[in-house]
Amino acid sequence: MQISNTIATGLKDWLMGMGFSATTTEMIATAVWTLAVILFILLNLIVLVWLERKFSAFFQQRRGPNRLGPAGFLQFPVDIVKVLGKEDIIPAAADKPVFRIASITLFITAILAWAVIPLGEGMILEDLNIGIFYFIAIGSTATISLLMGGFASNNKYSLLGGMRTVAQMISYEIPMVFSLLGVIMMVGSLRLSDIVKAQEHMWFIIPQGIAFIIYFIATVAETNRGPFDLAEGEQELVAGYFTEYSGIRYAIWMIAEYGNLVAVSTIASIMFLGGWNAPFGLTFIPPFLWLLIKIYFMIFLFMWVKWTYPRIRIDHLMHFGWKFLIPVSLANILVTGVGIYIYRMITG
């Protein structure tokens, strides 16, 4: 938005005034923005973990954390300190280099996805003309990190978890992409800011409601959250691909997963819920806050689903993905295409 633009421009001007060259200035500005994104993810994480604990407590008729800070808000920072103090255990038989980088690569993909996600008008690192495509491409690489983690641990539970992840994430990527295609066809652009601009009068959740539901289900599977958390499958696989991880490496897995959760919620808000456009002319709330509200609404949905449903079995999951979601999402594309064609015929 304007404020951030002003800050960015101001920063650039100031750096130029200091005598840096244009390239250096650009680099420093990018670094600052990247840092800001990481900070945003980490700050989000504190709120998210607190929210998750409070919501799950609410669904489960208990109080949740309530000792440290107001309503237990400081529980998570303290947990982080505890995790940092833990011994970093790497199993003797593990494939050590792969084991070490697995969690970090997932974190990197979670950060990379944020390069194209706008948090408001102009609040974006790089407004790529293939923004949504970039997001999908980066999102797919998360599969490899999980497989690396599962495979390198040299633990049978981890291996099974890693295998499940691959099967699940590859299967659910297809309906996810297809569900986004409907929106892209209506806008005619892959640029995220264009997509938001197209929703000034009507959010795409209205014409693309089915796509929204498909996207929601598919992203639950993509982010490995309940009821599709088969990769972690606590009851049979102990903790799935991160069984052997401890201390800070475990924390990085968690941070990356929450980072992905925020990323897919943001994309859902941008693609279907109108991005930073204010509904009902309620423009006194700044656009950035509107987006945040929508993101948190999506996250609430994710948590609601997770703490309500039991886990689905993997073969049911596959059947559901291939035999139901993919045909429905394809049909949605067809209907959208025909609709656009008819609309163009009418309007000329």
Binding site: Q60, Q61, G233, Q235, W307, Y309, P310, R311
Partner: peptide, 16 residues
Amino acid sequence: MALDVAGASAWFYGFR
């Protein structure tokens, strides 16, 4: 039983 199908919320209902 609820916990073993990963219905963590139902677990609390039983224990309540």
